[in-house]
Structures are given as C-alpha cells and as structure tokens.
Amino acid sequence: MAQTPPRPTPCTTDPDTAGFWAAAQQEQLVVLTCRQCRSVVHLPRPRCTQCGSEEMEWTVVSGRGHLYSHTVVYHQIHPAFPVPYTVVLVSLEEYPEVRYTGYLPGAPDLVAGVAMNVFFESLDGVSLPNWRSA
C-alpha cells in the first residue's frame, strides 16, 4: 500500500482569511464581524455584506457548537484521506448560522445536534481548528 501523503495545509496568507488562521495559531476560534453593524460575515469577505463597512474585526467565540451535518466518506478520492473518514459541519453556539468544517478519522457514531467542541491540531506547523464530540 502506498504511503499516505500529508493532509493539505490551508493557505494562511490570504488578506481576507489570514486573521482566522492567525487566531487559530493562538488556539482561538474566531468569526469575522462588522464593527459598524455587528453583523457576522461568513465566509469572510473584504467588506460587510450587510452595511458595506470595511471596518471588520475577528471576534473570539467559545469553540462550542452542535453537529449540523456529517458524511462518512467510504470511496477513496484524495490520497491524504484514507477511508473511511468523517467530515462534519458544526454550527457555532453563539452564531448558529455560522458553520465550520471538521475531520474525524473512521466512522464514529454521530447524530445531528450533538454538542461538539473545537480543538486545535498541528498540520505541518499550521494550527488547524477541528471538532470532536463534547
């Protein structure tokens, strides 16, 4: 069996999303919010999609959430992810309309709505927010 290559690492230098990865490096989970109208902008954009302000800031959240959806991948596609593995979408406790993605090896027993907690794993020096059952 061929050796599993490392998982792809995220780009952490994009002007619109770098703050997310900088916070993750400090083991903090953040969402982009507007200083003017306090709206959450997710995915991050260069301006507030509600009021048009360009004064945006990263707001720290608790890292608690609930399972929104999940899939167990059984068909091997990307060589860095041996099957089976599970992709989760987690809805944040403070901002339920904001979802982040997580990766779990194997096929753990998961039911929509279960409490999930963020944790941070290191991928080739990049701190990656990930999720597991609370």
Binding site: T9, P10, C11, W21, L43, T101, G102, N130
Partner: peptide
C-alpha cells in the same frame, strides 16, 4: 497547496480541503 480565500473564484478551499 490549498488555494486561498477570496482568490481563485471565491473557493475558500482552506475551510474545506484540509478536512477531507
């Protein structure tokens, strides 16, 4: 390498690809 945020047609790959 994962394509970045607002570049490359708004793919925001960094939020998806590292998670499989």
């Amino acid at each position: 390498a994962v394509v970045a945020g607002g570049e490359e047609g708004g793919r925001y790959d960094e939020y998806f690809l590292p998670y499989g």
